[in-house]
Write a protein that binds this DNA or RNA. Structure first.
Lengths: 136, 136
DNA sequence: ACGACATTAGTACTTTAGTATGAGTCTTAA
DNA sequence: TTAAGACTCATACTAAAGTACTAATGTCGT
């Protein structure tokens, strides 16, 4: 909201500056008038595009952002988080073990402690809860 | 891509029209020049905002839509799809069976044929693939 | 140096998940 | 009405997943 005020202030200033510039252009010759108008139109068109992109991107990216603070607050360790991500991608414990160069029992250990921390009974539930918590 | 060309064509036409209008305005009096420029600037600013909103909203809403055509093309039946959704929510076969008033073996049947259709080995992989295909 | 915790890994066990196969019922389109 | 497909369920497996321990390293801050 504060940014919107700043942007509109900047726009008003820009308009005033362009008014002064256009006066000088008109005095120096008639041919420049059309050019100035065209430049102003194009500049304001792209200002509109840019401002809108800025404001929309925030609404767009927020639901995709990973809540790292929540990961910490749940006390999920690095390894557990890695296992969670690979789990989500649909890998089995054995496949995760191969990918991380660990034994399957280690993955099971991580998975079990992960389920406790996420309050899940199954890996599918863990995935669902992790998504709901915006952890993945 | 075709829309972009149309939009830019429309903008060029709009510019030409405004040039003509501005000429008449300038002839009729000097005081109108600033006003015309301001109007042009504001109009193009909002054109930029509007066009950008249109193009961004499509990118934003598409990933949230369920591709019902893809479900059909994969020949996934209603029951299989129901099982898929409950699977995604983290339920076990037994829990899905209770929810749909079916036996666990029926859920297993649906699940197995679902895995074939989604080319998945596990339920977690089925969930991942279903999300990638925008089926869920 | 000590304690706390993360990481790794094992054994032994229970529980789910998943496959294969067969079979009965029901709907629907040819 | 008959064939096809959807839906249901069962049995008998095998394969994963998950739990409950125990325990050895390693790391890090006090």
């Amino acid at each position: 909201m504060k940014k919107t005020i700043l942007i509109f202030s900047a726009l008003i200033v820009a308009l005033l500056v362009l008014f002064q510039l256009s006066k000088y252009s008109i005095i120096s010759g008639d041919l420049n008038t059309e050019f100035v108008i065209a430049v102003i139109a194009i500049i304001f068109f792209f200002i509109g595009v840019y401002i809108n992109k800025q404001s929309l991107q925030k609404n767009k990216e927020l639901p995709y952002e990973i809540d790292h603070k929540k990961i910490e607050s749940l006390e999920i360790s690095k390894r557990e988080y890695e296992v969670l991500k690979l789990m989500t991608s649909g890998l089995s414990n054995k496949e995760i073990a191969n990918q991380l160069f660990l034994s399957e029992s280690t993955i099971k250990s991580h998975a079990s402690s992960l389920f406790v921390k996420l309050n899940a009974k199954r890996r599918t539930q863990a995935i669902q809860k992790a998504k709901a918590l915006q952890i993945i």
